[in-house]
C-alpha cells in the first residue's frame, strides 16, 4: 500500500516512515503543504497521514483543498493538539479519523484498516498462496473457497506472517507487534493465536512451522 506522510518534523517523519516500511508498505514524505499538493497531483495514494501544524500553513487548509478536488483518498490527521473542539472540527472538515501524538503504531494500523475498510472505493490487495486467499484489509481469509472470519489479533498475526513468509519471527517480536505495550502479556499468549491460525489453515497449502528456540515461520506447499 502506498502512504503519503505529511509531517514537517524530519525525525518523526523518518521514524514513522521506517515503521510503515517495516510493515511492508511504501511511503512518500512531504514536509510542507505545497510538497504534499505536488505529491497528490502526481501520485495515487491509498492513505494520507497529515500533520496539522506545518511551516507553510495549517494542515486543515490542505484538507479543505483536498476535499474540494473530489479526491477520495482517506486522510488520517496526526495532531499534537488534544482539544475537543479541534477533534470535532477536523472531522467536520473531512478528515476520516485522527490520532493524537504520540501514538501507538498498532493503533495507527488499526485506524488505517478501519478507514480503508470504510472507504469502499479503495482496491483491496489480496494475498494468494495456493488455495489460501487473504484480504488483510477486509479481514477475510478464504481457505479452499470457504470464508473464515478472523479476529483482529489473528488477522494481524496472519498478515505479519504472510507478508514476510519464510521469515522466522521470535515469540518476542510477535508480542511486540500484536500487543499494546501496556498489556502485560507473556510470550506464551502467542501460542494461543498460533494454535487458532493453524486450526483455520488446517488442510491448506499453508502452514505455520514451529522452529524450536527460534520462533515461527509461515511455509507454503508449492
Amino acid at each position: 500500500m502506498k502512504y503519503l506522510l505529511v509531517e514537517d518534523n524530519v525525525d518523526l517523519a523518518d521514524a514513522i516512515a521506517a515503521r510503515i516500511k517495516f510493515d511492508g508498505h511504501t511511503v512518500d514524505h512531504a514536509a510542507r503543504i505545497d510538497e504534499a499538493v505536488a505529491f497528490v497531483q502526481t501520485n495515487e495514494y491509498d492513505l494520507i497521514l497529515l500533520d496539522i501544524m506545518l511551516p507553510d500553513g495549517d494542515g486543515r487548509s490542505f484538507l479543505r483543498q483536498h476535499r474540494a478536488t473530489a479526491n477520495t483518498t482517506p486522510v488520517i490527521v496526526l495532531t499534537a493538539r488534544s482539544q475537543v473542539s479541534d477533534r470535532i472540527s477536523l472531522l467536520d472538515l473531512g478528515a476520516d479519523d485522527y490520532l493524537t501524538k504520540p501514538f501507538d503504531h498498532a493503533e495507527l494500523q488499526a485506524r488505517c484498516r478501519a478507514v480503508l475498510r470504510r472507504n469502499a472505493g479503495a482496491a483491496h490487495s489480496t494475498l494468494r498462496l495456493g488455495d489460501v486467499e487473504f484480504d488483510s484489509v477486509g479481514g477475510v481469509l478464504k481457505v479452499g473457497g470457504a470464508v473464515i472470519t478472523l479476529r483482529n489479533r489473528e488477522l494481524r498475526l496472519l498478515e505479519l506472517l504472510m507478508t514476510a513468509r519464510g521469515q522466522v519471527f521470535s515469540k518476542q517480536k510477535l508480542v511486540d507487534r500484536l500487543f499494546s505495550y501496556d498489556d502485560d502479556v507473556s510470550e506464551n499468549a502467542i501460542e494461543v493465536y498460533i494454535a487458532r491460525l493453524r486450526k483455520h489453515l488446517e488442510g491448506s497449502a499453508v502452514q505455520i512451522t514451529t522452529l524450536r528456540g527460534l520462533g515461527y515461520r509461515l511455509d507454503h506447499d508449492r
Binding site: N9, L12, I16, A18, R19, L78, A80, K101, P102
Partner: peptide, 9 residues
C-alpha cells in the same frame, strides 16, 4: 508531543 512521538516511534 512531536518529540515524544518521535522518540516513541
Amino acid at each position: 508531543r512531536t518529540p515524544l512521538a518521535t522518540v516513541r516511534a
